[in-house]
């Protein structure tokens, strides 16, 4: 788990601020037509205003709901499936080729098909996002289960615990740090695919739809402003999940640290 300390955070902020200042100066010095492509300061101002814009907020809430549901469905499918495939070797061997075939198919390529299958746009978007977000959770869960020390399981078995108890008391908590990492990756992937499906398939609400509408009105300031907000949301989610992992799985980091 990446650990962010004060100094590296400060440097990152300085780097970002530096780039923004350079872009702002270049724009003001006439490096491009600011009527076409707005100044950095204009875009940032718009991004701030969007947070209070009811029309944008309706779209944002729609995207957020789609994203959250997609992530929940992903977890509900991929974690149990990963635990099963991780624990039952023959099952994993049987579905491995299928996974290797399905995994590289870009979720975006499925959008036309999924549009035909669903009348409800939210269901369509969730399906597209789940398809892409599934893999990191599934693969991480399988590896997490594999990583469990056989002796840890045998210890509980020797005390007379059955396979169900061993799965619940040893396999699940032992694999939890890996599962959490998979969910963190899936959270980012799901953001990308929710917005992508909104952009490609359209609809009434959603940030992707909002961006499309802004584009048709030639409002590059609103387009870029909305895009920046999506990016910031991604950073925020990632930071929260990393913080949660660091808190919950201190034991995992302590062990990994001791091993190196």
């Amino acid at each position: 788990m990446p650990k962010v300390n004060g100094a590296s955070l400060l440097r990152g902020l300085i780097g970002t601020a530096g780039l923004l200042v350079v872009l702002e100066a270049a724009g003001r010095l006439g490096a491009w037509d600011t009527e076409r492509l707005p100044l950095v300061s204009t875009v940032l101002l718009r991004a701030g205003e969007l947070l209070a814009d009811p029309e944008f907020l309706v779209s944002a809430r729609s995207s957020l709901t789609t994203w959250a549901l997609a992530l929940l469905v992903t977890i509900a499918i991929a974690v149990p499936a990963g635990l099963l495939l991780g624990m039952v070797k023959p099952a994993e061997v049987a579905v491995r080729p299928l996974i290797e075939f399905l995994r590289p198919i870009p979720s975006v390529a499925l959008i036309p098909l999924v549009i035909l299958l669903y009348s409800e746009t939210t269901h369509m978007r969730i399906t597209v996002a789940v398809y892409a977000a599934l893999w990191p959770v599934l693969i991480n869960t399988i590896y997490g289960v594999r990583d469990i020390d056989p002796l840890a399981k045998e210890t509980l078995r020797s005390f007379g615990f059955g396979p169900g108890s061993v799965a619940y008391r040893v396999v699940l908590p032992g694999a939890a740090p890996f599962i959490a990492t998979g969910i963190r990756l899936a959270a980012s992937v799901a953001i990308v695919l929710v917005v992508t499906s909104e952009l490609i398939a359209g609809g009434i609400e959603g940030i992707g739809v909002y961006i499309t509408i802004a584009a048709s009105g030639n409002r590059l300031d609103l387009m870029i402003g909305a895009t920046i907000l999506v990016g910031l949301f991604g950073i925020l989610v990632n930071a929260l999940l990393v913080a949660g992992e660091n808190r919950l799985f201190r034991w995992h980091r302590a062990r990994a640290g001791a091993a190196t």
Binding site: D149, L151, A152, T155, V170, P173, R255
Partner: peptide, 8 residues
Amino acid sequence: YSRSLYPW
């Protein structure tokens, strides 16, 4: 013992 105790 390091493998037989549960670190969590």
